[in-house]
Computed example of a mutant assay.
Amino acid sequence: MGKLGDMAKKAKEMAKGHPDQADKGVTRAERMVDERTGNKYDAQTDKAADAARRSYQGDRPTDR
Rank of each mutant, 00 (worst) to 15 (best):
M1Q: 09
K3C: 11
K3T: 11
K3A: 13
K3S: 08
K3Y: 00
L4I: 14
G5D: 05
D6F: 00
M7P: 01
M7K: 12
M7N: 11
K9C: 03
K9Q: 08
K9W: 07
A11M: 05
A11L: 07
A11K: 12
A11T: 06
K12L: 15
E13M: 06
E13I: 05
E13T: 10
M14I: 10
A15P: 09
K16L: 05
G17C: 13
G17A: 14
H18P: 07
H18E: 15
H18A: 14
H18L: 11
H18N: 13
H18V: 13
H18C: 07
D20Q: 06
A22T: 01
A22P: 03
A22Y: 02
D23T: 14
D23S: 14
D23Q: 08
K24W: 08
K24R: 13
G25H: 07
V26E: 02
T27E: 11
T27H: 10
R28Y: 12
R28Q: 10
R28I: 00
R28F: 14
A29F: 08
E30I: 01
E30A: 14
R31L: 12
M32K: 11
M32N: 14
V33F: 02
V33T: 05
V33Q: 03
D34F: 01
E35Y: 11
E35F: 09
E35V: 05
E35Q: 14
R36F: 06
R36T: 02
R36E: 10
T37F: 04
G38A: 12
N39E: 02
N39S: 15
K40L: 07
K40N: 08
K40W: 06
D42L: 10
D42I: 10
D42E: 15
A43Q: 11
A43D: 14
A43R: 09
A43E: 07
Q44K: 09
Q44D: 08
Q44L: 03
T45Q: 02
T45R: 01
D46L: 06
D46K: 14
K47N: 10
A48I: 01
A48R: 01
A49I: 01
A49W: 00
A51S: 09
A52Q: 06
A52K: 06
R54A: 10
S55Y: 03
Y56N: 04
Y56I: 08
Q57I: 01
G58W: 07
G58L: 05
G58A: 11
G58M: 03
D59T: 12
D59S: 15
D59V: 09
D59Y: 05
R60P: 00
R60V: 13
P61E: 04
P61V: 00
P61R: 06
T62N: 10
T62R: 03
D63P: 00
R64A: 00
R64V: 00
R64K: 09
R64D: 06
R64S: 00
